[in-house]
């Protein structure tokens, strides 16, 4: 599922509201995660077997989980892991996808053909299955999960960046740069890349959400963050098993993951619109 086209800019008021709300939610997620690094009300892995599945109270604002661990502390501490997963996997996907896409769009021809057949092949594997194959192969761990979700996302980035770069390549400034005899790398990174940021940003912000969900899905299959630590996806998965008994342990991590995903998406779209506007102004 990919964003294929860039929407025309909506009304300015709405656009600014989106960007502001997205930025606020994203910053809130980052702030919570940073706080979790410095301070949590209780040690997040501390077990209190005498008080499992407690309802929210002054002592435990979000209640406790099945082992009596404080849910709020775990949400805060899990934030960093979740964000590292989301940003890390997306960053890796971009790090692989961007150069490949820019190069294929620049050189075209046989290289492009061969690479794109590979990319098509990888795209036709369900992303979750691809990530599963990689993480099972690499073994357990957060770094491995980032690699799995990042590599699995890379083909999609190649597809999107390449199509944007292809249309940019026919623009005058690129032809001019080539005519000036600029080096290939300069044309790719100096001329094409700055002009294709909008779709890349949208895709990246959407992908952060996908990576969070993907991490959660891997944990549903029993291959998530290593216990006793947890990211939000692992917490949701643990709490989901007891949903018919109590939903309190689910509430904190579910809200955290949902609000962050909304934040990333709004921020990405808002930023894209802002860039669109600037590009339009620059053209004028």
């Amino acid at each position: 599922m990919t964003e294929l086209t860039a929407a025309a800019p909506p009304a300015r008021r709405q656009r600014n509201a989106y960007l502001a709300l997205g930025l606020a939610l994203t910053l809130a997620a980052i702030a919570a995660a940073a706080l979790g690094l410095l301070y949590t009300p209780y040690p997040p892995a501390r077990i209190d077997l005498l008080h499992p599945l407690a309802r929210p109270s002054l002592g435990h604002l979000l209640g406790t989980d099945r082992y009596g661990r404080d849910v709020l502390s775990r949400v805060l501490a899990g934030g960093w892991r979740s964000l590292t997963l989301g940003f890390g996997a997306t960053g890796l996907g971009l790090a692989i996808g961007l150069p490949v896409a820019l190069a294929t769009a620049y050189y075209r021809g046989a290289v492009d053909q061969i690479v794109m057949r590979f990319v098509d092949a990888l795209l036709s594997i369900p992303t979750l299955v691809f990530a599963l194959l990689i993480i099972v192969g690499l073994g357990p761990g957060q770094a491995q999960a980032i690699v799995a979700l990042g590599v699995a996302a890379a083909p999609k980035f190649v597809r999107i960046v390449r199509s944007a770069a292809l249309s940019a390549a026919s623009e005058d400034y690129v032809t001019a740069a080539k005519a000036r005899g600029e080096r290939a790398l300069y044309v790719q990174y100096g001329e094409v890349l700055p002009n294709i940021w909008p779709p890349v940003i949208v895709e990246a912000s959407v992908n952060i959400g996908f990576a969070l969900m993907g991490g959660a899905a891997l944990s549903y299959l029993g291959l998530g963050t290593q216990p006793p630590f947890a990211d939000w996806g692992v917490m949701i998965n643990e709490a989901q098993k007891q949903i018919s008994v109590t939903f309190w342990p689910l509430l904190g991590p579910a809200l955290a993951i949902s609000l962050s995903i909304i934040g990333f998406n709004l921020f990405g779209e808002g930023l894209r619109d802002r860039l669109h506007l600037r590009a339009a102004l620059a053209d004028a």
């Binding site: 959400g209 969900m213 959660a216 899905a217 549903y220 996806g233 949701i236 998965n237 989901q240 949903i243 018919s244 689910l250 579910a254 993951i257 949902s258 609000l259 995903i261 909304i262 998406n265 709004l266």
Partner: peptide, 18 residues
Amino acid sequence: SYVGISIPDFVLGPVLIL
């Protein structure tokens, strides 16, 4: 539409069942 993309499916499924 944002609500739709932000709910994990393994929360949505059990909730619908319940």
